[in-house]
Design a protein around this nucleic acid. Structure first.
Length: 284
DNA sequence: TAGTTGTAATCGAGTTGTCC
DNA sequence: GGACAACTCGATTACAACTA
């Protein structure tokens, strides 16, 4: 299937930089529109503004929606496809360079976890527009393009501004803990383990558990569970998604397990919580 | 009535946290 | 870093409520 992209800007910048810009673009896909299976010789990040679709790597298939970004890694077979009923609208940036892998890892992207969540849609749109515009100039300014590309990556590197409302809001002193929190915020929709997180940070799980407890008052696993339940509360009160869909959306493959953990954390079953919230909003 | 959705209980395996 | 208790997770089964 061929779809004419809404806009694509392409300009190869090679100034011996640690990051080299290749191209960028944005597209409202038609239902079922797909790419691949195929490989690329550079990195490509696709950020979903709206809609849904799937992204398949040799290891697994990811069901994705708005607010998520996925990474195509050089040399790795990839396939992605827009949903038949709710096709996605996404933007992409392709690049390469000696430091690309380092920056991507800091943002939470690895081959094992090529998907992250990022709720800064407006910032990303603005940033990609600047990148596109800079590249459209008759005399492209490499520094301006690089600046926009770095800005884009920096947005992904930062944790979401929305701090989780955890019981003990202690100031986070440790960079490792901050990176760990960032990792959780990026990957809570996936079946991650503390072992995964520790290895992504290059630390032993016991050490990161100690740092977490000291800084947040909670061990990493509990922090992850609390964060997932907060997101589930948002989805229950703000959307009409089924319990099963919400369970899947916050990283639980099993809705039964999700219901159990939700009740343990909040004291309510998911259905009761939604009813309570709905009744509360109606009475306002 | 059959199918769907959600909750609850149980069990075994794997993971995590803590102590030493 | 090992050992071990506690916890989490996934699978299974049963049941209730609701709907077409």
């Amino acid at each position: 299937m061929t779809v004419k992209p809404h806009k694509i800007a392409q300009h190869y910048i090679d100034a011996g930089q640690d990051i080299q810009f290749y191209y960028t673009g944005t597209e409202q896909c038609l239902p079922g529109h797909s790419w691949g299976p195929g490989i690329k010789d550079h990195y490509k990040i696709l950020y979903i503004h709206s809609g849904q679709g799937i992204y398949r790597t040799p290891r697994e298939t990811h069901r994705l929606s708005a607010g998520q970004a996925f990474l195509l890694t050089p040399g790795e077979l990839s396939f992605y496809q827009a949903d038949d009923n709710d096709p996605w609208n996404y933007s992409w940036v392709a690049f390469n360079g000696s430091q690309a892998e380092l920056y991507l890892r800091q943002a939470g992207f690895t081959r094992e976890h090529p998907v992250i969540s990022c709720s800064k849609d407006a910032e990303i749109r603005a940033c990609l527009n600047r990148l596109f515009d800079a590249n459209q100039q008759p005399y492209s300014n490499p520094l301006r393009i690089s600046s926009a590309l770095y800005a884009f990556l920096s947005i992904l590197l930062e944790p979401d501004i929305q701090e989780p409302a955890l019981p003990q809001k202690q100031q986070i002193h440790n960079d490792y803990v901050r990176q760990g929190i960032c990792y959780i915020q990026r990957h809570y929709t996936q079946p991650i383990t503390i072992e995964n997180m520790a290895s992504a940070l290059g630390l032993h799980r016991k050490y990161i558990a100690q740092l977490f407890k000291a800084s947040t008052g909670l061990p990493p696993q509990q922090y992850l569970t609390r964060y997932r339940m907060e997101k589930a509360c948002e989805l229950l009160s703000q959307t009409a998604l089924s319990i099963k869909e919400i369970a899947f959306s916050v990283g639980y493959a099993d809705q039964l397990l999700f219901s159990r953990m939700f009740k343990k954390t909040t004291g309510y079953s998911p259905t009761d919580y939604r009813m309570t919230k709905t009744a509360g909003s109606e009475s306002l």
